[in-house]
Nucleic acid binder design. Structure first.
Lengths: 250, 250
DNA sequence: CGGGACGTTGACGGTCGTCAAAATTAGTGG
DNA sequence: CCACTAATTTTGACGACCGTCAACGTCCCG
């Protein structure tokens, strides 16, 4: 079995600057509790008592929110270096489920211990709150995808996002293998799996990408990006009120 | 002008238990910086330098995410007792805009000071992280609404949610006045304003509610709830893998 | 009182969900 | 390792839902 480890260690994750070597060492010895999760198993389940947060060391997870009716809404895919379990802080119980899509390894970090430690190390405290806030910002962007984009655009966003995240972890940005099935991707994108398949087929026939089952090759990044950007027409400016006509930088 | 104040004070917001009277008094004197925002003005704008977080003392805000193209996606409506500005922690700049939908008052709290204080008061630290985590959970639920529900169901969810939150603040749960226009509501729900209007008209003709412009009366809560629940059919259970067949409690 | 923003309704078409079937792959047990 | 079954992916046909465009009525504010 060939597991590629994320380069991120705990110290990198939580302490970006301003800490001495000895402090970092201390933290690493305290917190290095690794856990292996096999493909198909879950790391934590909806309703589980919250105790740890997890940083992904290797592998891939999907997180899903389950409605009381048993409907599953995929809320994201977690890769190396990312954090899982932050949803559990609110009520001391997890509100979603994290399932490994391939054999994976995580660091388990006792959250109460982490909070105690962050009382002494200010940078740690800041990084925790920043991580939490980043999740909020990420969800805002997802709201925009689901709230205003057509199927073509959503699929293009997904492919570009996946490509970027894989590239940042040392994989090819133009060729990769999906570890999730069509239905899981479609759920994240708010569409049916048939629509996803059709869109991928269309992109393939247009020469933008090539998809053979779970193997994806991206040929034309610019075309994908233009698909995302074109969707907003000038007319759509009408929601703004005068004194608030300022556009986000970046 | 008649402003109804939220009962929540800073001490209630951040310190649920375990603090002495003197500690609470100390905090309140340090942090009581109130700010009045007129209808149509913004509290903070996308791109603004992040400094304070805000608890809403009275009034109503909408928060929107602006894409680089100028498209506005409404991400939520904030009411008394709720917190605005948490998105800014991540990058030290706000990523969304908060606009008052009626004359409003907020407490402004310097976030760095708050963090410093939370180094000494453990309960404060816990409450901050919980608030942040609650936002994440809330967004998961919104993902489900946008990802899997039809227009009828989304509108029913919106009406029930608004009713619940208004009721919790001492207003009638069955009769209220919308402070936002159709387009803003529709944006939050991921639909066009014409579709929203049509759905409201349909509910009215079915005797479930009555809508006259911005005045809403709810006659049949059970019908609204059943519209939300019926949408998930047994077939939709197929995304689950065997060992993960556990449904969220609540 | 007039103009602009807002809300409503109708007609029409496009997008996407539903249902069905077939092909291919993955998983399982002998 | 092979055979068999389940799961996944793809494609087609069809229709429902909802977005688009347009027109009109109403409300609000200067």
């Amino acid at each position: 079995m060939n597991i590629q480890y994320a380069s991120s260690s705990l110290s990198e994750l939580f302490l970006q600057a301003g800490l001495s070597e000895s402090e970092i060492k201390h933290i690493n010895t305290v917190f290095h509790v690794t856990r292996k999760i096999k493909r198909g198993d879950y790391l934590f389940n909806s309703g589980d008592k919250f105790k740890d947060i997890f940083t992904i060391r290797a592998g891939l997870f999907k997180t899903s929110f389950l409605s009381s009716n048993g409907y599953e809404q995929v809320t994201g895919f977690g890769m190396g270096g990312e954090i899982l379990g932050l949803d559990g802080i609110a009520t001391s119980h997890h509100s979603c489920i994290a399932i490994a899509l391939e054999d994976s390894e995580v660091y388990a970090i006792d959250f109460n211990t982490l909070l105690d430690l962050s009382l002494q190390i200010k940078n740690l405290q800041r990084n925790i709150t920043r991580r939490l806030s980043s999740e909020i910002v990420r969800h805002h962007k997802e709201l925009m995808v689901l709230g205003s984009m057509l199927a073509d655009e959503r699929v293009a966003v997904f492919l570009l996002d996946l490509s970027t995240r894989l590239h940042a972890r040392g994989y090819s940005k133009s060729e990769f293998i999906l570890k999730m099935n069509r239905e899981e991707i479609a759920s994240l994108l708010g569409m049916k799996h048939e629509t996803l398949t059709r869109t991928l087929s269309k992109f393939t026939s247009e020469g933008i990408i090539d998809v053979q089952l779970r193997t994806v090759k991206i040929f034309n990044f610019n075309k994908l990006r233009s698909i995302v950007k074109e969707h907003v027409k000038p007319e759509n400016l009408n929601l703004m009120r005068e004194r608030t006509m300022v556009v986000m930088q970046n």
